[in-house]
Design a binder for these strands. Sequence first.
DNA 1: GCTAACAAACAAACTAGTTGGTTGGAAAGG
DNA 2: CCTTTCCAACCAACTAGTTTGTTTGTTAGC
Lengths: 205, 205
Amino acid sequence: MPRDPEATQAAILAAARAEFAAYGLAGARVDRIAARSGYNKERIYARFGDKESLYQRVLSEMLEEMRLATVVEEGEDVGDYVRKSFDFHRSRPELLRMLLWEALECTGEFVPDEQERRRCYARSGAALAAQLGRPAGPEVARLLFTLIGLAAWPIAFSTLGRLVTGDDTATEEGQMALREFLVEFARHGTESINEFITSGSRQDL
Amino acid sequence: MPRDPEATQAAILAAARAEFAAYGLAGARVDRIAARSGYNKERIYARFGDKESLYQRVLSEMLEEMRLATVVEEGEDVGDYVRKSFDFHRSRPELLRMLLWEALECTGEFVPDEQERRRCYARSGAALAAQLGRPAGPEVARLLFTLIGLAAWPIAFSTLGRLVTGDDTATEEGQMALREFLVEFARHGTESINEFITSGSRQDL
DNA sequence: GCTAACAAACAAACTAGTTGGTTGGAAAGG
DNA sequence: CCTTTCCAACCAACTAGTTTGTTTGTTAGC
């Protein structure tokens, strides 16, 4: 086996992704990452410091990847956005798993990559606002947050979905039907933004 | 201190709830559960066998509690259902955390309490179907699954919500506004069930 | 005083992180 | 062109510390 530090690093990172996505920070085993990568544990510590640092690195990379793939494009319809996000999460469920691990394990005040993430969502919010012909603001942000959840929820909690739908979501047809339902649900629900603003406007200004 | 095995057991279970909700199975520490409960570790092993058994017990109890509190009642409007669930999750976020831990840590085929859970969701599905004047079936089940997610998502991923909404959801007013938005979103979105059935009906029969 | 409930110490197993030593291969020197 | 030197990449084995689960002794109710 030829020596190639970059390939080594890539192999370790790939192994760490699989391990952390599967077991989280507390459950992950450095020995297993080493075994999976085909390299020695010492290489991991030499390159990435400690387990936590490696986790942060992997987490950052994976969440950014997910974020970039689920941005609201200029002129994108909310239904199309939900379909796109749904398909992406289905194709890369390990990225969503990392979001769950983060939600659970990152309890303190500190949020990694906070600035970049806020900016990314602000951009999506602006695109969504433009699409709806509304000013960007808390109402549109709430909608964005809801749309993100609409597409992510059924993938993240697929087991729950099977229990609720009587295994309908376990089939490919069930998944497609669910997806198109969510697309329509998002389109209809989005109308509620205007309703709600009107009815609640006295509180705002 | 008077002898009271039941109180001891209750104290241990309460401590275990807090610990497991906070750290999950892998991250939880039996010593911490003992310390929190005010009793000795040996009592835990004497009563509950091992860490895993205690976890399963706590998980079952908490998920059942959550399920029972978020059942669709006969004649309940979908908006009211979402509001009720949202409020419940906000008041007991540790129950939702257990659902996340389960989604992540329970990867195998086996699902604890599968029968009871399916029955519970089937009952909610029936109530929801009756409310909509539709037959129970995969369409209504998909809607139920979506409504559950709509109410749970923003609480489970509150940190993400802060990033997306620019900290709007960190305030009490922001939470209330989000809640009422979700209520309206659910009501409007529910209409899509009829739309989608009609347009996709040729695939069904 | 007998027994169930408790505390504390203990052993075995496991895990993150380290150390000392080995190897491939490039560069320097002849 | 060959060989010696040297260094970074690499690894097996080890260490220090933690964690689960047990055992041994103590206390308090009946």
